[in-house]
Design a protein around this nucleic acid. Structure first.
Lengths: 134, 134
DNA sequence: ATGCCTGCAAAGCTTTTGCAGATGC
DNA sequence: GCATCTGCAAAAGCTTTGCAGGCAT
């Protein structure tokens, strides 16, 4: 039960609902899920966990640093596992698909800009809303 | 009545509530306002316009391209006038202050990245969550 | 005159919370 | 055994909407 260890290592209590939620987030099929997505997905497999529990679990996961919450325009908040390497997102306006990317130069520029204004970057959100090019 | 012309030029009907809302958005004191901010601000000057109207006006302004809506983390949606020159935002986590900036290199990189993936950028959102450096 | 606007109140949606019982450690 | 978690249902918070009357053109 690998997921149990993960939860524990983030200081989270190990419970059945949490393990199931974490498992879903790990599944490579869809990396960015809304609370509702998770709720429905779990229903499919017969695990019916209340939405309240899902929201609570996700909040705690986020606080613990296990997941990251994104507020993309128009869509509900989505959650993804907090992978080691930071990345940003493209949201396809046609399909809703979410693509990850990372660009060193942009990251650096951001730091520079903040510093120039006397700030340090604690966090940032870069989202490209895109459309397939034909 | 300059503002009347502006509304008209964006294809919007000219009404008292809209003019007042637009005036507030133009005021340089606070460029980024929530619907609630506007509501309260108008109350102060004795103009009590219903929240529903403010939301409706802002939606229409946005649709018409007069204003831009931002969804910053934690805060409610904020609206600002759509100035000619695009810019991005820094949100100070300590004071809530919002600072605008623009960086050519970042803009370019974004296009490149999207293109590399077969997309074109329709819109983007870059927000730096920052803290004053001591 | 007509169609778009406004206010009000009610509804909608996502997310949060109080409470009582269940579960993990 | 005790603290924390869970489900349920209710509430909260922001935003939208239906309706009836009012205003701009």
């Amino acid at each position: 039960m690998e997921n149990g260890k993960i939860l524990r290592s983030f200081g989270l209590k190990v419970t059945a609902p949490r393990i199931k939620i974490l498992k879903l987030l790990e599944s490579p099929v869809k990396a960015h899920l809304t609370a509702e997505d998770i709720f429905k997905e779990l229903l499919k497999t017969g695990d019916d966990i209340s939405l309240a529990t899902i929201y609570r679990a996700l909040s705690q996961f986020e606080e613990a640093g296990l997941v990251i919450k994104h507020n993309f325009d128009g869509i509900n908040a989505v959650y993804e596992l907090n992978s080691e390497e930071h990345h940003d997102h493209m949201v396809c306006l046609k399909t809703g698909e979410i693509i990850e990317f990372y660009n060193e130069d942009i990251e650096k520029k951001q730091q520079e800009i903040a510093e120039k204004h006397g700030y340090e970057v604690i966090n940032h959100s870069l989202i490209l809303y895109v459309r397939p090019k034909k």
